[in-house]
């Protein structure tokens, strides 16, 4: 028998850690979607640079800076001392995943804007240029200059988006995965898992648009593969936790019998991964599945995955896990 009593009752720490809430989960989700769009559109640009893509696929990269800004807003709202946020950009600390994330975002914004401009149909680009020229000539000159540069360096823009997107997607998992004090998070699987989920939710987000038939079929097929990989990564992650030491076993229990079990298996594994996998498979076999249903489920599942991992990971620390204190 061991009974532990502490006189401490600090908010956000006791009785269990609860420092990060929905804002962080929402940021990690939006960061993943953004990462997925950047990688997938970047790859499509590398594959095909002749502009032969549907109007919606050509325009949806503009979502990236918008969704990312929304995610950054959530992240900023989570800070307890918000007006010090500029401090992230006064120093680079290589041992801090959060510092890496802050600086990766600096690369993501211009890269995604360049990608969006590159894929925008010529007629729309010309209309934008003409409108800017009417009221601000220097702005129009800058746009033409930068637009020309982007067109000349199309492959570099595509590769930058693929690399920065993969970095961002991986980072969203590594932010949690590198925290050795939280056994549920402290797994190298979390980086690849969040990246795969980001690619999958990115593909699902793209499938919400009115794409060409060929584009939709290719994306849906890719999404099926990504969901299968995600399920495999979740299995490997849970096996790793359940077969570890007492701290990781206690962490595994949170999802395998503990307080987050029903939510995790129902919302993430069931509704968010298995159901859309079956829906996409049925659609491929010619069955009737309501349009965009699978995509909506993948997006909801991606948000649930991050939400549950963020909350469940705080449920077990070293001392709550019953690790011998000395």
């Amino acid at each position: 028998m061991q009974e532990l009593t502490t006189t401490r009752a600090n908010a956000l720490v006791d009785p269990v850690l609860h420092i990060w809430h929905g804002e962080v989960a929402a940021y990690l989700f939006l960061g993943g979607v953004v990462a997925g769009i950047m990688v997938l559109v970047g790859l499509s640009l590398l594959q095909r640079d002749d502009g032969g893509r549907s109007r919606h696929l050509a325009l949806l990269p503009w979502s990236v800076p918008v969704l990312l800004s929304l995610g950054m807003l959530f992240l900023w709202m989570d800070l307890e001392n918000r007006w010090n946020a500029f401090r992230f950009y006064l120093v680079f600390r290589p041992t801090s995943p959060m510092s890496w994330g802050a600086w990766i975002l600096i690369l993501v914004y211009p890269a995604s804007l360049a990608l969006a401009w590159r894929t925008t149909p010529a007629a729309i680009r010309e209309a934008v240029r003409a409108r800017i020229a009417r009221w601000w000539e220097p702005g129009e000159r800058a746009l033409v200059g930068m637009g020309g540069w982007v067109d000349r360096h199309s492959r570099a823009v595509a590769w930058t988006n693929v690399i920065a997107g993969a970095g961002l997607g991986m980072y969203t998992g590594m932010l949690l995965g590198t925290l050795a004090s939280r056994p549920l998070w402290n797994s190298a699987i979390l980086g690849p898992l969040f990246l795969t989920s980001g690619l999958s939710t990115g593909a699902a987000y793209m499938l919400l648009y009115r794409l060409g038939d060929g584009e939709r079929i290719r994306l849906a097929r890719l999404d099926m593969g990504l969901i299968a990989v995600e399920l495999a990564l979740i299995a490997v992650w849970l096996i790793g936790l359940a077969s570890g030491g007492s701290a990781t076993r206690a962490a595994a229990w949170v999802l395998l019998g503990g307080p987050y079990t029903t939510a995790f298996w129902l919302l993430v594994v069931g509704f968010g991964l298995t159901a859309p996998l079956l829906a996409e498979w049925m659609e491929r076999r010619g069955g009737h599945v309501p349009g965009r249903l699978a995509a909506v489920m993948v997006l909801a599942g991606g948000l649930a995955l991050r939400w549950i991992i963020v909350f469940a990971g705080q449920h077990v620390g070293w001392s709550e896990a019953g690790v011998a204190l000395f």
Partner: peptide, 19 residues
Amino acid sequence: KCTGCKACIAACPYDARFV
């Protein structure tokens, strides 16, 4: 210099920090 991001609180195995 503190932004209140709470990464240090998550990183501390002793839960010795608070906001």
